[in-house]
Design a protein around this nucleic acid. Sequence first.
DNA 1: CTCCCGATAT
DNA 2: ATATCAGGAG
Length: 219
Amino acid sequence: MHRDNNALPAEIKRAGRIFRILKSRYTNNETALIHKTPLDLLIATILSAQCTDKRVNIVTETLFKKYHTADDYANADSHQFEKEIRSTGFYRMKSKHIIRACKKIISDFHGKVPSTMEELLSLPGVGRKTANVILSNYFKVTEGIVVDTHVKRVSKRLNFSIHSDPEKIERDLMSLFPKNNWIAIGNIFVLHGRYVCKSRKPLCDDCLIAAECPSRLIK
DNA sequence: CTCCCGATAT
DNA sequence: ATATCAGGAG
């Protein structure tokens, strides 16, 4: 019985090299905490599902001026709220989830966003990815690496994982990087995937780790 | 697995 | 026209 996720020392060294370069490149986390409260971050993250951050930012900019507490969302008129978040897509489902989640936050968590994985997952509309964003960005703890589409694409192009199953990719990444880097990995890969290692037109000419990348576009 | 769903880049 | 975007629920 052999394990295929046991990283070799050379692979771990290469991963560390790439991590250090990307970390220096993305020192100031541009997208990180523009959100003052965990609740703002929770709402923004739920709205982010299958939607570009540009759209979410436009919507939340006005949304957060009107809604401040879990109570505000819990008592919101669902029809009105749907209109307010409409442009982020899946608006009916997101509206329902947010209002129900906030009702649960009030009844079960004293009106405050919970800080454990299990409690976060109990909220409607909050899955593992959303929960991990809250945990890693606000509460600074993590139980793994969030494998979203950016992490998935970057990991594949850099040959950190040959798999497409997010759980297998996560295991590969966890064997390549030390646990104290796991929080940063998600943020850094997302930023790199968004601005440089893009799905459609990757900017390999501007990529600091092109030399380490087997998928780079050769001019 | 399907459905939810609008906006944007190509 | 179409692929894709900080996913999650049933």
